[in-house]
Amino acid sequence: MNDIILRVENLKKSYGRREALKGISFEVKKGEIFALIGPNGAGKTTTLRIVATLLSYTEGRVEMMGLDLKKNPQKIREAITYLPEEAGAYKNLTGIDYLKFMAGFYAKDKQEFDEYVERAVEIVGFKDRLKDKVGTYSKGMVRKLLLARALMTKPRLAILDEPTSGLDVINSLEIREIIRSFVQEGISVLLSSHNMLEIDFLSDRVAIIDKGKILEIGEPELLKQEYSAQNLEEVFRRLVQ
């Protein structure tokens, strides 16, 4: 019971008459990578945004470390980090200034602040460019900077929306390795992707979501066995058909 970081129960979200989420439920355990996979418009980003305290929800319950999200958004923000899809960083700040700026919101003292920044510098891997403005960085560098920002505080839950979206193979692999290494240190990850091969490699458990409903939850290997599929894409196709 104590191993559960996030519990989502019968979550519903409507934008006017349109139902984006039609009652989804799942749990994320400590030290687990839990992935939401599905096509565009399935409800992945909406779910992540709700858990990240950005969006309100129409019905259901979201609990983070036993705290009700609606009642304790500020406390929950202290324990999570969120990486939006295709997000940028402040272009007029240098990389190191950006990391310091973000560390300033989480660190309780100078020692913790220095620890966060140092860890972020290790994650990004391009120390020599950290004094350059973010506006001069490539897409891959920005994504690594943002990932470093999301992981430097070792949050209880890192929420990553399409973490490798638009990146080349090398950058994608590096980012996956970084995420994996941090999970081994005890943080939990809730991520979304429509790249099912990536999820297959990265996640401990997946929820296949389509049209605001979760179709199936399980470990990738077990799902593949259950549906006699070579990969998660095939599992998804069979579920939808």
């Binding site: 969120y82 939006p84 402040y90 272009k91 920002r149």
Partner: peptide
């Protein structure tokens, strides 16, 4: 740039 989304969390 979606920095607002990050800032709001």
């Amino acid at each position: 740039d979606k920095t607002l989304e990050t800032l709001l969390t």
